[in-house]
């Protein structure tokens, strides 16, 4: 573990909690893409199947359980409890255009042609594009609630910090995982436009609205 990964995991956990809390407190999922949340639930489910096969540390196991349970709770709130507030018209990204190519790529490019490893690879590739329905929805509605922008900032920051974690681990441990690094780069690049708007608008107290 290193400082970058520590802060990154904290930022990721914060994002997940911020979103769950926002939906629960406001009893509304307006402006939230249910499709992205379903993709994240799939990402965690396919990535953390090793909960059943290997134990790394109490931290590792507990964080995985927290991520999985919070993501399913979020999906439940969006599609069941507060489904009346779900804005399906603006959450119209065709996720099959993400899942199918990502699935194919995971079968073609992976570290080991074993089921758990292919699922892990699928999860890594899927996570890099899972936020697209949410970003697409914001571009369609033309705005985002401030709490949603904080959620997105923490979510984007987490994988950006993982990039530094991988630099650290390469330098100090000689460890690197090309699949995770390339996917992490793609994932972080997809947030760049949002990061710019977040820093130039939200941090100045303005509301995030498009076109800028």
């Amino acid at each position: 573990m290193n400082i970058f990964r520590g802060i990154a995991d904290f930022s990721h956990l914060a994002a997940i909690i911020i979103l769950l809390h926002k939906i629960w407190k406001s009893r509304s999922c307006a402006g939230i893409s249910g499709k992205s949340q379903i993709l994240f639930a799939i990402v965690f489910t396919t990535r953390y199947l090793d909960l059943l096969t290997s134990f790394i540390s109490l931290y590792n196991t507990s964080m995985k359980v927290i991520y999985i349970s919070c993501s399913y709770a979020t999906v439940y709130l969006i599609y069941m409890k507060f489904r009346a507030t779900y804005d399906g018209n603006h959450d119209s990204f065709r996720v099959e255009f993400l899942v199918v190519p990502v699935g194919g790529l995971a079968v073609l490019i992976n570290h080991d042609f074993a089921l758990l490893e292919i699922l892990w690879t699928f999860s890594i590739y899927l996570e890099s594009v899972a936020i697209l329905p949410q970003l697409f929805m914001i571009s369609k509605t033309g705005e985002a609630e401030t709490i949603t922008t904080h959620y997105l900032f923490c979510l984007g920051l987490y994988r950006a910090l993982y990039l530094f974690n991988w630099i650290w681990r390469f330098y100090f441990e000689g460890f690197f995982d090309m699949i995770a690094i390339v996917a992490g780069l793609v994932q972080t690049v997809l947030y760049c436009d949002f990061f710019y708007l977040y820093v130039t608008k939200v941090l100045k107290g303005k509301k995030l609205s498009l076109p800028a």
């Binding site: 995991d9 990721h12 790394i56 570290h111 080991d112 490893e117 892990w120 993982y162 995982d177 995770a180």
Partner: peptide, 10 residues
Amino acid sequence: KAKLLLHDEL
């Protein structure tokens, strides 16, 4: 290459 890959990151 039946590498048993242990992914230690979240």
